[in-house]
Structures are given as structure tokens and as C-alpha cells.
Computed example of a mutant assay.
Amino acid sequence: MKNNILLYVTIVNVFSFNIYSQKEKFYVTDKISDKYAYVDVIKTYERVAQKGYKSVDLFKKLGDSYYFNAKLDKAAEWYCELFAMNTDLEPEYYYQYAKSLNFIGQNDKANEILEKLKQKSGAILEKKNRNLR
């Protein structure tokens, strides 16, 4: 009986130690990865754009990065580049560009963008209604 109890205690101790050591390993790994995980993406994208690379995806990422960090003046600059390349974009880009333009005081241009958004939204709704029939 004492041998069985001693065996159970030993088994429980081994499993407890094993679980504890696994948790500790994950914790150390997480700490190490936190140290190297941060990269300033906005600065990297800006360097790429300054070297002359232009793409819709790059300008979307730059505009969104500044927009969602409440730097609407910089967002307006990159959304302007985006709309110069392509005007067939998702509706949220029209709204974000218009809001950024309002922030920097270009209200007339912002109203033009909002009109385009209304037209685009109307066309999307009309297309969805045709598909439902």
C-alpha cells in the first residue's frame, strides 16, 4: 500500500514538473520573440515609396497606417497618391480620403470625393438588386 502511494506521488510529481517546465519554456520563448518583433512598418513603406516604387497596395497601406494612427494630414497625402493611380477602389477609401481632406481644410475636394462615393454606392446597390432578381 505504501509502495502504491509512493508510486502515485512520484508520477504526479513527474507530470507536475513536466507541465511546469513546458510553461517556463513558452514564457522564455515569448519574451525573446517580443524583443525582436517590432518593426516600424510605416517608415519602411515610406522608404520604399521614396525610392520610386509605386503601387496601389503600397499607397493603401501607407494611407491606412496614418489614418488609423490619427495622422490625417499624412493620410491625405498618401490617399492622394492612391487616387491618382486608381479610382476604382473600395468605398471605405473614398470615405477615409474625404475625411482626411476635411481635416487639412480641402473641403471642396472632400465633397467631390463624397459625391463619387455616393455614385459608387448607388451603383453597387443597383448591381446587388439586379443579382437578387
Rank of each mutant, 00 (worst) to 15 (best):
Y8L: 14
Y8M: 13
V9Y: 11
V9A: 13
V9Q: 12
V9M: 13
T10N: 09
T10R: 15
I11F: 10
N13C: 12
N13A: 15
F15W: 03
S16E: 05
S16N: 05
S16I: 07
S16T: 06
N18S: 15
N18F: 15
N18D: 11
N18G: 15
I19D: 01
I19C: 02
I19Q: 07
S21N: 14
S21P: 00
S21M: 13
Q22M: 01
Q22V: 04
K23H: 07
K23N: 08
E24N: 14
E24H: 13
E24R: 15
K25I: 06
K25H: 10
V28D: 04
V28E: 07
V28L: 04
V28H: 03
V28F: 06
T29P: 03
D30Y: 04
D30S: 02
K31R: 15
K31N: 13
K31S: 15
K31W: 00
K31H: 10
K31M: 11
I32S: 04
I32V: 05
I32L: 11
I32M: 03
I32P: 02
D34M: 10
D34T: 12
D34I: 11
K35I: 08
K35L: 07
K35W: 01
Y36N: 11
Y36D: 03
Y36P: 09
Y36W: 07
A37D: 07
A37Y: 06
A37R: 11
Y38C: 08
Y38T: 12
Y38A: 09
Y38H: 14
V39F: 14
D40W: 09
V41F: 11
V41L: 14
V41E: 14
K43E: 04
T44Y: 06
Y45T: 08
Y45R: 06
Y45F: 05
Y45N: 05
Y45H: 03
Y45Q: 07
Y45E: 08
E46Y: 01
E46P: 04
R47T: 09
R47K: 15
R47N: 11
R47V: 02
R47I: 02
R47A: 05
V48D: 13
V48W: 06
A49V: 01
A49Q: 02
A49G: 01
A49F: 03
Q50Y: 08
Q50T: 04
Q50H: 07
K51A: 07
K51C: 00
K51G: 00
K51F: 10
G52E: 01
G52I: 01
G52A: 02
G52N: 02
Y53Q: 10
S55N: 10
S55T: 03
V56C: 02
D57I: 04
D57E: 10
D57C: 00
L58P: 00
L58V: 02
L58H: 05
L58M: 05
F59Y: 06
F59M: 04
